[in-house]
Simulated assay, not measured.
Amino acid sequence: MNDLDERWSRLQVPSAALHGFELKPGSGVWLSLDNEGRRCVLLRNDSDKPSGTRLFETKGVAASIEDLKLADHPVSPWIVVVCRDYRYWEPFLAFADSLHEEMKGKQEDNVSLTLRVLRTWRWLWSTDPEGLTRETAVGLVGELWFLIRWAGIGGALDAWCGPEGSLHDFVGHEVSVEVKTSQSAAGNGPTHRITGLQQLTPLRTGTLYLFSVVIAPDNTAGNTLSKLVDIGLAALQNDPARREQFLRKLSSVGWAAPLSKQFDLPFRVVSEQLYEVGDTFPALTLVSFPNGMPAAVTAVSYSLDMSHCQDWRVAQSAEEGRMYLEGLTL
């Protein structure tokens, strides 16, 4: 907890006038609490929008214009951005810092500026803090490892469809890739759970690959979920639109840095291998049931032991795999 966060936490819930303090002296950005004890960021309303105007609303934050009395200041209209969930408090302070930075040399009124910054942060405000499970986090590690280390985030970000619930995690013009991540191995290779008969059905046009990655907890390793995200953001630092796209994809599976720390455990990569899924690949598909599925069977999932799939392996490193993944670029 930094000094500002600690000072914010010591504010009293107001019974009349709000108590608060400026983020930085003269910044025009005030930190306060509302009468429900929720954290608020305040800016003076210098627009012609009247009090009572609702400006922005998500499950994480809401913004409106209200007539308020702040400490020794007279009653006046303020832009009030309220944080509705204590789990967002840490990024909410970062949001206030972002407002302050954007106010330097601004050429718009405070309402327009606030809305612009809120929309920049909308990937966080729309994230479900309960959306990321341990299983989902492990799968996300595998997808990010493939996206950053193998496919290249600059060219393959558009092809990353895992967060949208696509049949395959990566879909390009000529190549699709299904990513499977395991924390354990069976026999001489990992075992992956295959969901349904369509997941490893060879493509009619193009090539389907299965990327298998095995990770193991290791406190001495330098890999974590957050570090993978940071590497991806750094690679996109000169392209704000693509950074926003990356963060939006992450938020759709429930990831947000301040909300996902419980899953940020260090790991090492035990193995990473790419397999070509063709007609002879040892997978169950609809072709495996020429007479059709039994009427009583409504869903199929099965385990695939990769130690029996070596004949279909085409690469064991990103360098070897790059030639197979050129068709991922959209």
Rank of each mutant, 00 (worst) to 15 (best):
S226M: 00
L236D: 09
N188R: 14
L203Q: 12
Q199G: 07
P240L: 07
S184C: 03
S166Q: 15
Q183L: 09
Q183H: 03
N188V: 11
E174Q: 05
E244I: 06
I194R: 12
H173G: 11
E244V: 06
S184F: 02
L236H: 06
P217D: 09
F170C: 10
L247D: 05
L236M: 13
T195R: 13
N219M: 10
L247I: 03
P240I: 05
D230S: 06
N223D: 07
R204V: 14
T195M: 08
G189T: 15
A186F: 11
D230T: 12
S184H: 07
V177S: 10
R243Y: 08
L236W: 07
Q198D: 15
D239S: 08
G222R: 06
V177H: 11
T181P: 00
R242F: 07
L208Y: 10
L225E: 03
A234C: 05
V175W: 01
L247A: 03
A221G: 02
H168V: 00
A241V: 04
L203I: 02
S176E: 14
R242V: 02
E174P: 00
P190M: 12
H173S: 12
G172R: 02
A216T: 05
D218V: 08
L210G: 04
G187L: 11
G232W: 02
R204A: 13
F170A: 13
A216Y: 07
L197F: 04
R204H: 15
T191S: 15
S184P: 00
T195V: 12
P217N: 08
L236K: 11
